[in-house]
Simulated scan of single mutants.
Amino acid sequence: MASDFDDPGYDYAVSVAGRAVRTMAEQRIPPMPTNFAIWFQYYAGSHNNLRNAIDLLIDHNRPFDVSTNQDLFETCIAPEVSAVVVETSERLQA
Rank of each mutant, 00 (worst) to 15 (best):
D7I: 00
R28I: 06
R28A: 08
C76Q: 04
E80F: 10
A44M: 11
Y42P: 01
D71H: 11
Y43L: 00
V86W: 12
N48Q: 07
F36T: 03
T68C: 06
R91G: 14
D6K: 12
S67C: 05
A44T: 09
G45V: 02
N35W: 09
E26A: 09
A2G: 11
D7P: 03
D71L: 09
S3T: 08
S3Y: 04
S15I: 03
W39N: 03
S46Y: 12
V21Y: 04
P79R: 05
N52I: 10
V66P: 06
G18T: 02
I38D: 08
A2V: 11
D6M: 09
V84K: 06
Y42H: 03
P8S: 01
P33T: 04
N48E: 14
A83H: 06
F40A: 02
D59A: 15
G9E: 03
W39G: 03
I54N: 08
F36N: 04
M24S: 07
V66T: 14
P63D: 14
F36L: 07
M32D: 11
D65P: 00
D4Y: 08
I77D: 00
F64V: 00
Y42L: 00
A17K: 09
L92G: 15
P33Y: 13
E87G: 10
I58L: 00
I29E: 14
R62M: 11
Y12P: 00
A78N: 08
G9M: 06
T75S: 09
I38V: 10
I54K: 13
F73A: 00
Y43T: 02
A13Q: 11
N49P: 04
A17F: 10
T75E: 13
P31W: 02
V16W: 07
V85Q: 10
V84Q: 03
N61T: 13
R28W: 14
F73Q: 00
R28T: 08
D11Q: 01
L50I: 03
D7A: 03
L50A: 13
V14H: 12
Q93W: 05
F40T: 03
Y42D: 08
S82A: 07
E26Q: 12
